[in-house]
Amino acid sequence: MDEQTPEPERQSDWMNRADFLTGVAFALLGFTIIYLSWIMPRLEIRGIHPSTVPGLVPGLLGALLAISGILLGAKALVRIRGKAGWRAFMAVFASEQAIRFAVVSGLCLAYALILVGRVPFWLATTLFVFALIVAFEVWLNDAPKPLLRSAVFAAVQAAIVAGLVTAVFQYGFLVRLP
């Protein structure tokens, strides 16, 4: 795949490569689940009927997942065999969309997994809302807003959102916020 390749073809090539990788991943997951279901206790000591062992359904589902994964991967492999294009495939992970994804997911994860529970909820929320708005208005924007203007409005919105959500859940729904 090079620069001249038409967009739809490039996209379908990318999807085929992604399908190949996910097919392999699902097949491996399927086999792992089959193994875990096989070694799952069969509760013989409790005298249960052998056709009701807890691992029966997960094992069957694992097998179905493995088969589907192999079919998906094999179908994709036939389509991409012999074609170069792994470099174009990897390029997506360094695109502008990938950067936007990294920023938004990074901020969300930092808020939900690190800040919430460690600092007061209202403060965590204020920081998160402020940071996300400013990041996407000032830096990750084709028509960036001036930093000061964006920061002032973002701070006001962040304070209002944090105050409202905290008040509504804490006093309205009587939730003990983290």
Binding site: A112, F128, V129, L132, I133, V175, P178
Partner: peptide, 17 residues
């Protein structure tokens, strides 16, 4: 940009509540 952070805050607090 202004809407999505609010929605995420609701996702977090909603799951917790």
């Amino acid at each position: 940009e202004k809407l999505m952070p609010v929605v995420f805050v609701l996702c977090v607090v909603g799951s917790f509540a």
